[in-house]
Amino acid sequence: MKPIDLTLTISESIPSFPGSPKPIFIDWSNIRDDGYNLELLFLSSHTGTHLDAPFHFIKNGIKIHQIPINRLVGNAFLIKIPKSKNSSITKQDIISFEKKNRKIPNGSSVFFFTGWQKNLKKPNYFTENPGLDTLASKYLSSKKLNLVGIDSPSIDLGKAKSFAVHHLLSQNNILIVENLANLNKISSNEFNFTILPLKLKDATGSPVRAIATVLHSKNS
């Protein structure tokens, strides 16, 4: 199967998290005057499909450039669980998936498809998005996961103000990938992933190129 691109395209029109600057692309050089085209970029390190390093919320957490590359590629579970606005992904949702499929081993990576990505251009995209509840994040943390990904702009509920889930996962050294696209195109509940952030020294996060390839034909 061909690789599936799980990445949003970053442009000046991509919606940004409230309070964050919008991306700006500045034409710097052009073929006519300089012999080559070149642009400058101004954007948050958490623009579009991006990875949160634990340092984003934890003082002594690892930073983007310190993440071992073996944590950015591997096998993952995909939990497809459509959620509407302000709806939580619960511990029971995860346990139900495990009963139907197989138990998620310690050290795994888990991705959640909620269907929220279709609301990217809507005003409530960042304010009413689904996310994990506290019990779900504690359950995943107990498994010492490598990475958790989601197709909404935050692993926390949009209405949550304390970022409790971010804090809990980051305290347990779990990587977070947000704003994933095209998870619905993955036909299996297990797949291979590649998540490649820029190697930015001391950064809290980075836009990524996220890619999936299906391991086998078992349908979710």
Results as ranks from 00 to 15, higher is better:
Ile14Arg: 08
Leu72Thr: 01
Thr9Asn: 11
Phe113Arg: 13
Ala203Ile: 03
Ala164Trp: 02
Ser11Thr: 15
Leu43Lys: 15
Ser188Trp: 01
Ser87Ala: 12
Asn86Val: 01
Ile150Leu: 10
Pro15Glu: 00
Lys144Ala: 11
Gln92Cys: 01
Phe25Ala: 10
Leu175Phe: 07
Phe193Arg: 11
Asn37Val: 08
Lys143Phe: 07
Lys103Gly: 00
Phe17Met: 13
Ile67Asn: 04
Leu157Asp: 02
Gly19Met: 12
Ile186Asn: 02
Pro153Arg: 08
Gln92Tyr: 07
Ser220Gln: 13
Gly115Trp: 04
Gly74Pro: 04
Asn129Arg: 06
Asp52Ile: 01
Lys22Leu: 12
Ala210Asp: 03
Pro105Trp: 04
Ser141Cys: 11
Phe193Gly: 09
Leu6His: 06
Asn124Cys: 04
Thr134Pro: 03
Thr90Leu: 10
Leu200Ser: 11
Asp5Arg: 15
His56Phe: 12
Phe17Val: 13
Ser162Phe: 06
Thr213Trp: 07
Ser206Met: 07
Leu169Trp: 02
Ala164Gly: 11
Phe97Met: 04
Gln171Met: 14
Phe57Leu: 14
Gly61Asn: 04
Tyr36Val: 15
Lys201Tyr: 05
Ile195Glu: 02
Lys103Glu: 12
Pro68Thr: 05
Asn179Asp: 09
Phe77Met: 06
Ser84Gln: 14
Ile176Glu: 07
Leu72Gln: 01
Ile10Phe: 00
Ile89Asp: 04
Ile89Leu: 11
Thr114Trp: 01
His50Pro: 08
